[in-house]
Design a protein around this nucleic acid. Structure first.
Lengths: 336, 336
DNA sequence: ATGAAAGCGCTAACAT
DNA sequence: ATGTTAGCGCTTTCAT
């Protein structure tokens, strides 16, 4: 922990040249003599100088950094990050992940703030599960799990509708009729589509939609607890629950257990996402897999394309989902 | 995607005051009239202004942001991030994760560069698995999985020595005698300690250490492939392998399979870390669990302590490990 | 209470 | 080929 970082001025002084010359050397600008350049490089090496990203990007347009803006770092976003990192490798870009760690989650435009904060720092940004309609920055942006269909923005999403249909149909095919739905956040498009899928599958099976079998779980364990309890304490109790994501599905299992219910004997539970945690819980969760890592890498691909060629139009990528059957679902014990 | 971000100058102009006044309002400085302040806030709201982290932190010392500097975002680091994010929640700090996505992994001082790049941006940094001895920045730093014992720096580590002893002893207790070791990166203290633990446990069991049963796997799948193959093609073949981390243990299983060997019938494999992937591979991996998320949150705790009270001395935290028995280990088929 | 001006570390015209 | 100079958006004395 030194008193002060080495600055370009230190290098210039030590090398006996101007800061402008050092800057030119760093950025491989033409117009520097061979030996001047070599000398400056030597000094840089010797002093262990690294330019400040902050100062550099305040001044110039390019930073060779891309940002991923997330509300929090939880299992789903962590998978995205793994995939994004893989895609960045070999491109020469650095990655900055910016997160307020969920502290502004309920603020209507948290992603706008985060984006504005890092904006000057980066050449473009990926924004995950944004809550507001439009973003307003000067660099390219691609949205993962976007809130609304917007043909003006590049987006990467899973096929939420078909995923939810598959999940619900799986329960129907097992013989379930009273199927509860633990909904996601109503302000998110993915959540709305999953509910649509649930309804659609019910209808296809000739099961009447019952609003009393739906509660908002909000995608997060703590917001789901009460909702799951209400669902499970109804009479007659649903024999199965489709939760809009894994986090709340896992919470549902915990609530069921606390109520003395066995999963899957007394209750089947299906989730959505297939985060690693879903395979590790007890019982292992049947869920709809999203290609999370691929979503991250696709987003990086789109973004770099837009950065390198700004005339690139917005593109929407939709990735298919698939059902992963594990042990949290089975045929209902008794027929209704 | 607007043409330009809203700046403090825009706000000042719209409010009919100077930028200095706007700055004071933003930072709750005294010396601004009530109604001026209210008016400025209204304009800020209306324009959707958010101050630029870049400009702000170039100018002032505090940014209310902490950095986590990682070489890459892979399963181990992803777990750390989850734990760190949880610990940051409620503190008011924002998190910036900086990574070159493994592109400078072999550069001897990659962490020094990354640290220097984000230094001005943050109030302190957590640096994960650094490769060089000492860091040189003007803000507090805590190291996770540090390279060398350094009482001058705050560090968070697992008890690598005892973890490795436990892993090796587990194999010994199952009846294995020819136990191979797929070492980590020799430049990392954690890797050296795990090898020490391996040797120690062998010695305790009265098994002679055989250098031919040790190969460097380098902590990464691609660097481990050849090493694992060499180990498995020796005659006589080891009946068990302790890999220095999960990533290379999983790779070892893949190599064994490609050689027609069954795990655990023909070969037992133990890993280290207990990343989620280790439970999901086939067969599920017996491994030594590090409290990865806790490492992240402990590091945040130490760092915030140092930021809030700079007189805080360096502290070292060592977390205990524990063996997680799954299905990749069993008694050897034939006795030697 | 408010504003003018200097400067954080760097880049980019523009001189020389 | 090199240096001088003017900012990037912000904070912070220091005048007024």
């Amino acid at each position: 922990m030194a008193d002060r970082q080495v600055t370009i001025a230190d290098v210039a002084a030590a090398a006996g040249v101007s800061v402008a010359t050092v800057s030119k050397v760093i950025n491989d600008r033409y117009g520097v003599a061979e030996d001047t350049s070599a000398h400056v490089r030597a000094i840089i090496e010797q002093l262990g100088y690294t330019s400040s990203l902050v100062a550099q990007s305040l001044r110039s347009r390019r930073s060779n950094v891309i940002a991923i803006v997330v509300s929090d770092i939880e299992p789903f976003n962590a998978e995205l990050l793994k995939g994004a990192a893989r895609a960045i490798r070999g491109t020469g870009y650095d990655l900055v992940v910016f997160s307020d760690c969920g502290q502004r989650k309920d603020h209507p435009r948290w992603e706008q703030r985060s984006l504005a904060r890092v904006n000057a720092l980066t050449d473009g940004a990926i924004i995950v599960t944004p809550s507001s309609v439009d973003v307003n920055v000067s660099t390219p942006v691609v949205a993962i799990d976007h809130n609304v269909r917007s043909p003006t923005m590049s987006t990467v999403d899973s096929d939420n509708l078909n995923g939810a249909i598959t999940a619900t149909a799986h329960l129907v095919n097992l013989g379930h009729r009273r199927i509860g739905f633990l909904a996601g956040r109503p302000d998110l498009e993915s959540a709305r589509l999953r509910e649509q899928g649930y309804r659609h599958a019910l209808q296809s099976a000739g099961i009447r939609f019952d609003p009393d079998l739906v509660r908002v779980g909000g995608y997060q364990p703590d917001t789901a607890t009460e909702a799951a309890r209400e669902l499970l304490q109804r009479t007659p109790r649903p024999t199965a629950i489709f939760a809009a994501n894994d986090a709340t599905a896992i919470e549902t299992i915990a609530v069921a257990r606390s109520l003395g219910l066995d999963v899957p004997d007394d209750l089947s539970v299906v989730g959505f996402d297939n985060v690693p945690e879903s395979a590790l819980c007890e019982p292992p969760l049947t869920t709809v897999e999203q290609a999370m890592q691929q979503m991250g890498s696709e987003a990086v691909g789109l973004l770099l394309g837009m950065i390198e060629d700004p005339s690139t139009g917005p593109r929407q990528v939709i990735l298919r989902t698939r059902l992963v059957e594990r042990s949290s679902t089975r045929a209902p014990a008794e027929t209704t």
